[in-house]
Nucleic acid binder design. Structure first.
Length: 282
DNA sequence: CAACCCACCTGACTGC
DNA sequence: TGCAGTCAGGTGGGTT
């Protein structure tokens, strides 16, 4: 569900409302998410701490907490397919736990809730020193919106790989945070089919694909992400995104291509849909 | 190492 | 209205 733009939108909500705030308590309703939630550390160690910074690596949110003069911890949060982080103003009475609300952080003025019906998401904790070696972070490719993601890097990384480009983009080893929606959209803009083998990508195609990946992601962040259906993604304040109305191919199989009116096709790869225009994309 | 398949889990939607 | 089948924004483990 949440790809980089959705995670970035949530990150900004958290930054806006929770930075420098002190944590009063943390409660865990259930721990059996994708990885077992460290209940004891969250409930016993974290209260009294201050959220110093919130950063994003790919689709992973990393909260930096100051627990004491020399004690710091990093909280890694992944939203999986259906996860949400919702911020509410604190009322006199704590609200009843929602269905699928698994963790709740109570700050001085706000509540932060981690809600995840499918439980593919995770909440983990580690020390700052071990952050770069953490399982959720250590194998991630470059940030797509950063300077390291260049046509030269993409071209070099496509050599010797036969997997299709859509998969190369979403699997995170080369570039981190691009999911199925934005991979399909960027490939459409670049005129390259999602099922094209990576090692068949030409240098001049890499040159246009990389800026399109960046543009699609930046536009989606500006639009607050994509909300695909009711009950779908919302930002920290519960607001839907609207980039779904700008999708050219994703989820539009059978509908006309916005550029040439040809019917958008859908194929399956890695058990997931890939969408393209057979006329505009080669 | 790379490619591929599958499982994890719940809910929304489609078609009969 | 119900019920079965299909699909979903992600990712890591196992197998070939």
């Amino acid at each position: 569900m949440p790809e980089l733009p959705e995670v970035e939108t949530v990150r900004r909500s958290i930054e806006k409302f929770l930075l420098e705030q002190s944590l009063e308590k943390c409660e865990c309703k259930r721990h059996d998410l994708r990885y077992s939630i460290p209940v004891k550390a969250l409930e016993d160690e974290l209260p009294g701490a201050t959220l110093d910074a919130i950063e994003r690596r790919g689709k992973v949110l990393i909260g930096h907490w100051q627990l004491g003069p020399r004690k710091r911890r990093c909280l890694l949060m992944h939203l999986g397919m259906s996860g949400r982080l919702i911020i509410q103003e604190r009322e006199k009475k704590p609200p009843v736990w929602q269905k699928h609300e698994h963790v709740r952080w109570t700050f001085t003025d706000h509540l932060l809730s981690f809600i995840d019906p499918r439980r593919f998401g995770s909440v983990e904790i580690c020390t700052p020193g071990k952050l770069s070696k953490h399982d959720r972070v250590k194998n991630l490719g470059v940030e797509p919106l950063g300077d390291e993601f260049t046509p030269a890097l993409l071209f070099e990384q496509t050599r010797g790989r036969s997997q299709c480009l859509r998969d190369l983009l979403i699997l995170g080893k080369v570039v981190a945070g691009v999911g199925n929606i934005y991979a399909n959209e960027a490939l459409f803009r670049a005129g390259v089919r999602p099922q094209r083998r990576s090692n068949k990508l030409k240098k001049r195609e890499a040159k246009v694909l990389v800026p399109h990946v960046k543009d699609v992601l930046n536009e989606a962040v500006e639009a607050g992400g994509s909300t695909l259906s009711s009950g779908g993604y919302v930002d920290g304040e519960g607001k839907s995104g609207w980039f779904q109305f700008s999708h050219a191919v994703y989820g539009r199989d059978g509908q006309p291509c916005p550029s040439c009116q040809t019917k958008i096709k859908r194929v399956r790869a890695l058990k997931r849909g890939a969408f393209y225009c057979s006329k505009c994309q080669k």
